[in-house]
């Protein structure tokens, strides 16, 4: 579904991705783990076209999107829950969801909204609350809900568990699993390597802008190097 071939990304002179190749197949949950500054967010954002890859090739559902611009890419069936959630703080919960469903027609909007409210009943209760006043966990739910409103076939999640209490984290991982069961393809970036790998069909380890390991989630969980570096021994 998504394929990266030898992708390089630069921020000015800094090379943040140094020839990354990876693949996510339809219906999979793939996790990407790596230390701070490894280039995980850069990788997701490069697929979204912001920043653009300086070389290499990115294919989404067979189409070359390497040089496409961000809005076009994001309207083609891909959605992202970015690092730090980035909900529109001054807009209400419902308005945020409207922004996600900006391009869907009224009927689609209503049915997708119903789906999102089923996944996150809290959002239904808080529809008219200004989203900037919500708790971190609620904002994360909103960010996921907003992404789902675009009706994507594939979703990127950039550290959805960051800064949340364990109980909320579990809830979010359950939702991710549920989405996969409904046919969504998921690409998950996490520092919480343990949970991310347990959930994942396959995983990649990114170090300094390069993929250093790839395997099934289960194998990575018992991999000696991974255990040392990311699972606390």
């Amino acid at each position: 579904m998504l394929k990266l071939q030898n992708v390089h990304t630069h921020y000015g002179k800094i090379e943040a991705l140094k020839g990354v190749s990876l693949e996510v197949k339809e219906g999979e949950i793939v996790s990407l783990i790596g230390a701070n500054g490894a280039g995980k967010s850069t990788l997701l954002m490069t697929v979204c076209g912001d920043p653009r890859a300086s070389s290499g090739k990115i294919l989404f559902e067979g189409n070359d999107i390497t040089q496409a611009n961000t809005p076009d890419i994001m309207r083609s069936g891909l959605a992202i829950v970015p690092e730090g959630r980035r909900v529109f703080a001054g807009l209400t919960v419902l308005e945020n969801l409207h922004m996600g469903g900006f391009f869907t027609n009224k009927q689609e909007f209503e049915s997708t909204l119903e789906h999102v409210f089923k996944l996150f009943p809290r959002l239904r209760e808080r529809q008219s609350q200004r989203s900037g006043t919500m708790s971190g966990g609620e904002q994360q739910m909103l960010a996921i809900g907003r992404a789902l409103m675009t009706k994507p076939r594939m979703i990127f999640l950039d550290e959805p568990s960051l800064g949340l209490a364990p109980i909320i984290i579990n809830q979010i991982f359950e939702i991710i699993e549920q989405l996969r069961d409904e046919g969504m393809t998921v690409f998950l970036v996490e520092q919480n390597a343990n949970q991310a790998l347990r959930l994942a069909d396959r995983g990649y380890v990114l170090e300094n802008g390069e993929v250093v390991l790839q395997d099934t989630g289960d194998n990575l969980l018992v991999n000696e190097d991974v255990r040392k570096a990311y699972l606390g021994g």
Partner: peptide
Amino acid sequence: SRMGRACRAVSEDMKMAGLLGINT
């Protein structure tokens, strides 16, 4: 309005609006 909402969203976080497919 839908466009008015988009104006508010873009003035808050243009990058995020782009990530929702909006032509900023």
